[in-house]
Design a protein around this nucleic acid. Structure first.
Lengths: 396, 396
DNA sequence: CCTCTTTGTCCTGTGAGTGGAAAAAGTAGG
DNA sequence: CCTACTTTTTCCACTCACAGGACAAAGAGG
C-alpha cells in the first residue's frame, strides 16, 4: 500500500491535526470551538486536509438538538512505529495516528551488540507486527536510544553505554530501511513525552521525568516542550555526585548516583548481600537463577525481605537527594518516576519523597506531586510515536 | 512632560522596536534585510511607529554608493528606570530606549527594613536622577528583588531573606508611584537578562547565571527566555545540599551551599579565622573596621593572604560541586558567575572550573565556557530595563 | 405541520501583504 | 556637466487570507 506522505500546509492544519490526534474524532463545529477561526476558514482547511488523505470523514454524530454533525477523524489507516531501545531490551509498538497502541513487542537484547545487530532485531520485530495485520506500512517512526542524541540530525553522540553507536546515522539508516520519516531522541525524553501525552503529566507544563533503569536519566519538559540542552545531554543526571568520595564509577569519578543506585548497582549490591549471607531470600534466588537483577530485589522486597527493603530505601535516599537539588533548581510542577525499577514501587517512592520534601524549600515542594509513571514500559514507545507525530503534524 | 504610552500594534512592530533597541539606529533598508517583509509592508509599519512617537526620524545615513537612507531610531526621549534591590544595597539607573545607562546610583540599604522604607529610598533616588536632568519622567520601570516572585502579578512570594515583603504588591505600588508600567522579577533573573543583552551571554540561547552575593541564586535561560519555574522559585540553588551533614543553615537543614559559601558565610568564616589568629592580614582588618565582609577577604586574597585564599578556594569547590551537578542536568552553553563576590575573581573561578570540569561528563563540559559576568554591578539594572522594554515592546 | 436549534455552505467585503515599476537621490567616471 | 549605474524609497495594482452574515440542510419537539 502507498503510504501517506502529505504534511499540513500551514499552522492551522497542523493545529487541527493535533487536536484530532489528542481528542479523537471531532465535528467541524467542535473543532471550531477550539481553534478561534471562522467557520468558513475552518471548513476550507478541513477540506484541504480531507484532500490530502490525512483525515477522513467518519459518519454522523448524534444530534445535540439540531442538525447532526459530520465527524472528522485522522485517517484510521495511518500507522506510526515506536521503538524504544533500552540497555538490555527493545520495545517496538505500532500505533494509529491517535497514538493508540495497536500492538507491542518486547525482546531482551544488549545495545552493546552495536547498531547493525540491533536494527536487524528492530526491523524483524516491525516486520512481525506488520505480518500480524496491524499495519501494511509505516507513515513515520520514532526511536529512542539510551544515550545523548544530536537531535536535529538524529545521531547518537558519545554514548557511554553504547559503544559502536557514536555517530551512527540512526535516523538516516532507519528512514532508508522503513521508507518513512524517522525521528531519534534520548529514551528518557521519549518517556517524558509519553507520560505527557497519555500519562500523569497531561496537564503540566514544566516537569521532570526520572527514569531509573540500567542507568539513571531525567527528561526535562519546559513549557510543554522537551528541553535537550546545548549538546543533547541535558538530563544526564546519572553522574551527579550523590556520595562524596563514594563508590568508583565507570565514568572515572567517585560517588556518582548511578554507581550507588540503578538497575545495575542494585543487582550488584543484592548479589553481594546474598553472598555475605545477609538475606536468605536473596541467597535462594541467587542460587536458583545464577545471578540477581533488580527484579529479584523487587520480588524479595515484596516478600518482606529486610535486606532488599534496605537496599531500595538507601537507593531511594540517594536518588531523592539528587532530585531534591534538581527540584530546588528547576522548580517543576511534577516529578515522575519511571523505568525498570518502578517495580520497587512505593518503598522507593516513599524514600525519594522523604528526601525531597525534607531538603527542598517549601515554596518549591508545597504543591509538588512526586508520582510513579502511569504507562510503565509503554511510555517510551508512546513517546516515540508522539515524537514523530509532532514532527509530521507540523507545517512542512 | 507627557510620557509615551503607545504600544506596538502588532508583532511586526514589536519586532522592529526590538531590532532598533538592540541594533541602534537603522534605515528602512537595513531593517528590511532583517525582518523578511516586503519593502512596502515595512514602510507601512514604520510609518505607523512614527505616528505613535515611539520611533523618530534620525537624519540621513552615509551613502553606500547610491541614494542615502533615512535613519530611524527609537525616540531618544524615552526613559526606562532599572531598579535592583539587593540584600544590602539598592541600585537605580536610568536608561534610554536602547538600554544605554545614562545615570546610575547605588546606596547601601537593608531589605529587611521592609518594602515601604525601601520604596521611599528608591523613589528618592529616582527623583534625584530625574532632577539631574537625565529624565523628565519614566516610560517604564523594571525592578528586581532578592527572592522568588510570582511573575505575572509582580508580587514576592515567601522570600526567606525579605521579611515583610511576602505578598506586597510591588508592581502595583511602584506603578502607582511612578505613573508608568512596571515589571518585577527575581534579581538573579535580571542579572541573567542583563548579561544576555549587553554582556557575555549575547549569543547563547541556553545558559546559567550564578549570582553569589549575600545569598546564592541562579538565573536560568532556556531558548533565550528566562525560565522561572512553576511557582517562580526556579534557580534557588542556595539551599541545595553541598556538604552532607554540614553546617546548619537558616532554612533548618544542614550543609546548604549558602551556609558554606556566600557573602554572609564568607564574612563569618573570615572573622572566625581572624579571631583564631590564623591570618594577620584579616586580623588587622577586623580590628580596623570592627567587622569583616567579603570585600575584606577579597582584599586580603589580593594581598596574597593564604587563609583568605583558602577560604575562597574552599567556597569555590563547594560552589563548583553544585554547579557541576547543574551542568550535568541542564547542559548549558555557558555558565556566568556574577554578584558581589566577583571581586574574588580568578581564584574563585579557577576553583569552580576545576570542580565542574572534573565532575561533569565531557559531552557537557567539552565546549562549556565558565566566565565572570562582564557587567558587574550594572547587570541587574540593565536587566531590569530589558525586562520592562521586552514587556512594552510586545504586542498590546 | 410548524417552530426552534444546530450544523454546514456560500458569498462578499476588508485588510494584509507581495512584487514590479518608477521616482528620488546618490556615486563614479569621462 | 553629462551619463551610467546603485541604492533607497514610494506608489500601485493584484492576490490571498479571513471574517461574518445570509442561507440551506437536517434534525428535535410539540
Amino acid at each position: 500500500m502507498r503510504r501517506m506522505t502529505a504534511r499540513p500546509g500551514n499552522a492551522h492544519q497542523a493545529r487541527l491535526l493535533r487536536l484530532l490526534r489528542d481528542g479523537g474524532p471531532n465535528s467541524r463545529a467542535q473543532l471550531g470551538d477550539q481553534v478561534d477561526l471562522s467557520r468558513s476558514k475552518l471548513a476550507v482547511e478541513v477540506d484541504r486536509l480531507l484532500e490530502t488523505g490525512l483525515v477522513v470523514a467518519d459518519g454522523l454524530a448524534a444530534s445535540r438538538g439540531g442538525r447532526r454533525s459530520h465527524n472528522i477523524r485522522l485517517n484510521p489507516e495511518l500507522r506510526f512505529l515506536g521503538v524504544d531501545i533500552g540497555a538490555t531490551s527493545v520495545d517496538v509498538a505500532v500505533t494509529n495516528a491517535e497514538l493508540e497502541t495497536l500492538g507491542h513487542l518486547n525482546q531482551p537484547m544488549d545495545v552493546r551488540e552495536g547498531p547493525v545487530a540491533v536494527f536487524e532485531q528492530v526491523l524483524a520485530m516491525a516486520a512481525k507486527l506488520r505480518a500480524s495485520g496491524l499495519a501494511e506500512g509505516f507513515d513515520g517512526a520514532g526511536i529512542g536510544v539510551p544515550g545523548p542524541v544530536r537531535f536535529p540530525e538524529g545521531v547518537p553522540v558519545a554514548p557511554p553505554i553504547m559503544p559502536g553507536w557514536d555517530g551512527f546515522p540512526v535516523r538516516e539508516a532507519l528512514s532508508q530501511e522503513l521508507g518513512c520519516p524517522v525521528m531519534v531522541d534520548n529514551d528518557v525524553n521519549l518517556m517524558a513525552m509519553g507520560e505527557q501525552h497519555a500519562g500523569v503529566a497531561r496537564t503540566v507544563a514544566d516537569f521532570l521525568c526520572v527514569k531509573i533503569g540500567t542507568g539513571i536519566g531525567c527528561g526535562i519538559v519546559v513549557g510543554g516542550e522537551v528541553y535537550r540542552g546545548t549538546t543533547g545531554s541535558a538530563g544526564d543526571i546519572g553522574h551527579i555526585q550523590a556520595v562524596p568520595d563514594g563508590r568508583p564509577c565507570a565514568c572515572g569519578n567517585r560517588g556518582c548516583l548511578e554507581a550507588h543506585f540503578s538497575g545495575a548497582a542494585l543487582a550488584r549490591d543484592a548479589t553481594e548481600a546474598a553472598q555475605q549471607g545477609l538475606s536468605d531470600e536473596l541467597a535462594q534466588r541467587l542460587e536458583a537463577n545464577g545471578g540477581l537483577t533488580a527484579v529479584d530485589v523487587s520480588a524479595a522486597a515484596a516478600a518482606g525481605d529486610a535486606t532488599a527493603l534496605d537496599l531500595i530505601r538507601e537507593g531511594g535516599n540517594h536518588t531523592g537527594q539528587v532530585i531534591a537539588g534538581l527540584v530546588s533548581f528547576f522548580n517543576p510542577g511534577l516529578v515522575v518516576i519511571g523505568g525498570g525499577v518502578t517495580g520497587l514501587g512505593h518503598t522507593l517512592l516513599a524514600a525519594i519523597r522523604t528526601q525531597v520534601y525534607r531538603q527542598s524549600l517549601p515554596l518549591a515542594t508545597g504543591n509538588l506531586p512526586i508520582v510513579l509513571g502511569e504507562l510503565g514500559p509503554t511510555a517510551g514507545v508512546i513517546g516515540a510515536a508522539r515524537l514523530i507525530s509532532d514532527h509530521l503534524f507540523s507545517p512542512a
